[in-house]
Write a protein that binds this DNA or RNA. Structure first.
Lengths: 107, 107
DNA sequence: TCAATATTTCATGAATGGTTGAATGATGGA
DNA sequence: TCCATCATTCAACCATTCATGAAATATTGA
């Protein structure tokens, strides 16, 4: 269950090209995740810029991280992303008739 | 079908307290919509502030408007909101296992 | 046409967000 | 311990967003 302040933070976090890219890459990477270095390399951006955006996503709870030796491995928090979808459907746009159609189209 | 630039604009538009409130109220109002004045009244904010946020939502394509005599009536664009959900599920977080669970929980 | 209502636009200043490069912290190997 | 690597933090700067109140626009009725 997600509340409004968390949903706001999540939307805010997703409202940036680099961060949307990051989420996508981390989702694709799966539970194994990806290191900061690999992500910076893949996106072609500086380490400090990457770190900034990872911190935003992390504070919004959309990603998590663990340290493995010299690397920091990030992974998408699927439950949190799902909770955001749930918030949009349930708490924000309750009863909007087009929603079911939109979900179905995404299948 | 929603593309990335539109999704970014949509997330950006949703990343504000007032605008999230507006979307909710317009969704609840249904196809009939609600006038700018009624919305400003309901939210307790100035007309110019409201107008600014309505313009952001409108540019993101999340709401539409029509003029009725002296009033401007706004309504949520359900298809566009559904498309955003679709983008999140399909194009951004494809295959994330928790998504289906999150959707189910929102039912 | 004049006045009243409803809404948007504009200008200003304050606050927030983002990029950059240098400095710092953490880790592991020689 | 010393050095190299990986990552984060910091400070400075630029750009964007937002709030506010005044002015402008649109519409209707007297």
């Amino acid at each position: 269950m997600m509340e409004r302040p968390e949903a706001l933070a999540a939307f805010s976090a997703l409202a940036h090209e680099v961060r949307l890219d990051l989420i996508r890459r981390l989702v694709v990477a799966g539970p194994e995740g990806a290191s900061a270095g690999a992500l910076a390399n893949g996106l072609g951006i500086s380490a400090s810029r990457l770190s900034f955006h990872l911190a935003v996503l992390s504070q919004a709870g959309l990603i998590g991280s663990r340290r493995v030796s010299r690397h920091v491995i990030y992974r998408a928090d699927g439950a949190r992303i799902a909770a955001l979808l749930g918030y949009l459907m349930h708490d924000c746009c309750c009863g909007l008739p087009d929603l079911r159609a939109g979900i179905a189209a995404a299948d």
